[in-house]
Design a protein around this nucleic acid. Structure first.
Lengths: 304, 304
DNA sequence: CTGAAAGCGCTTACAG
DNA sequence: CTGAAAGCGCTTACAG
């Protein structure tokens, strides 16, 4: 009962590697120290960085994350949500592959806090997203700063909200000479767009601002096949900073990074705050993008 | 106390959406219905399909999965393992990005079952991996079946076990004319290899069997730049079936799929079996690969 | 067959 | 300040 006994108990406890049962603790504290990450992004292109940020932010607080990939299947979504609720998750983060679509499952009346990241949320919820207008402006301004004057925007389908948002920001920044070509999110569309631009009469652009890295890669390949030098003759800039595409393009792509990991970090900290009852303002939070300078534009890779 | 009361209780229970607290159940049953997936594969190229398979296999059994990305950081690995143990996971699946390296964390004396999938395991553990020799044989035999005779193997670094395994299988199947070019896992190595092969004197190969889809893409692009037609003049086959690379190559790549999702499914079911005390034979289980026929080889896309 | 009690592994509030 | 009891939400084994 004395100090020595106390000491000995403590020592033995650590010696045999005693670890308290988190389930039993959770029963009392009403906290499971787990959260769920729900996504319909099968490829993981957007979800992986978000997940990395969430995990990084929460591991220090002892919380683990359930990853639930639900495709676009409402039934599967329902099953996963119920499984998470049964396991008493402290909160749920919903994430996806585009900002203007919601997951195929209703998260609006759950007993646990929900935060939306890179997917559409319900009114009055907490929503994190990238500031695509800012990203587009970064791209255009960079091209202008290295002397480009006739910048064409080759992008994805017009029904994407982020496509319209980027195109609008481009329009404001691009000046007098401007043109937007809408298409699909593929390399072949990039090819095709170069065909359209270079086979018509008149001046050719000296820069292409592409809606994603795949389109950018397509344009770079198409330009090379036409004997046009990137970046000497034409600068090309991408969007997404998807390593595997951006870094393997020849030359490697200068591109806009949406800072999804940081977005995940903030979503993680926010859901934790809500779980602990701390007040959080609802609303949309737009996170700034970051320009990643490689070699497809020319210019110094030292700006950032 | 009568049947009516019983009925009424049941009805009310479902009406108000009563769901038993899994934490409390776990306290009794010694089962948490959670497992942990530990990985050092940051890109998620291999982990995502494995994860999808694990999740798909286990969701029906009510088990959720903690995803823990530990990079190559032993300290982080330790933290995540302890967090999982605290949360009483029923088992752990370790996965990674190559078969001949182990995760930077010791899983050999845990109180819960461990299954290894696409990463090196400890002796006497249960290990799932793809049968790369089978995959290589599939590739070579397909090329031969469509009439190719002089097949060169352009692959990754020789210190990868899977590289040696595939090269050996290639050697056995390729017949008299054979050559292996070791390099790195990049498109530019594919380019370079085409340069080496086509700038030397003598006969040129009529087929390239590449060690991954990135190398294959590099060779296809390099061949096109030389005016050599794929698949008319040369067939190219990849490895990994990494959609984003294989499908966007022009022409889309015929490639070998390692069936990682199925590997994940089996790993999931196996760790569940172990958790339930069912007997499982230790040892390495090699899963067959599958040929995915697209257009980079020619031949009919109907075989499979 | 029904209903009350004991117990899973902890923590918290309360007597001594 | 120390130690025993009560209780988190369930399930299981045991009396009635």
């Amino acid at each position: 009962m004395g100090d020595k006994t106390r000491e000995r108990v403590k020592r033995v406890a650590t010696d045999i590697g005693f670890r308290p049962n988190a389930l039993a603790r959770g029963l009392l504290s009403k906290r499971s120290f787990t959260i769920g990450l729900l996504t319909n992004d099968t490829y993981g292109r957007f979800t992986l960085p978000v997940m990395a940020g969430v995990s990084e932010a929460l591991v220090d607080h002892g919380v683990s994350v359930f990853l639930c990939a639900i495709e676009d299947d409402p039934a599967l979504g329902q099953i996963h949500v119920e499984a998470m609720l049964d396991k008493q998750v402290d909160g749920i983060i919903a994430t996806g592959k585009r900002m203007d679509r919601s997951l195929p499952v209703d998260l609006s009346n759950l007993s646990v806090p929900v935060v939306y990241a890179f997917t559409e949320g319900t009114p009055n919820s907490v929503i994190f997203r990238s500031d695509d207008a800012h990203g587009a402006a970064l791209a255009v301004e960079w091209l202008q700063s290295i002397g480009r004057r006739w910048i064409v925007h080759v992008t994805g389908p017009k029904d994407f909200f982020s496509v319209r948002e980027r195109a609008d920001a481009y329009s404001i920044a691009a000046g007098e000479c401007q043109q937007v070509l809408y298409g699909v999110w593929s390399e072949s569309w990039g090819h095709e767009a170069v065909g359209l631009l270079w086979e018509r009469a008149g001046d050719k652009p000296d820069a292409l601002f592409c809606g994603n890295d795949q389109i950018a890669r397509g344009t770079v390949d198409a330009l090379r096949e036409r004997g046009i030098k990137v970046p000497e003759d034409v600068s090309v800039i991408g969007f997404d900073n998807w390593e595997i595409v951006a870094a393997q393009t020849r030359p490697p792509l200068t591109t806009v990074d949406m800072e999804l990991k940081e977005l995940g970090r903030q979503a993680g900290l926010t859901v934790l705050a809500l779980a602990e009852g701390r007040p959080v303002e609802p609303g949309v939070r737009k996170l700034p993008c970051r320009l990643v300078v490689r070699q497809s534009c020319g210019g110094e890779p030292s700006k950032e």
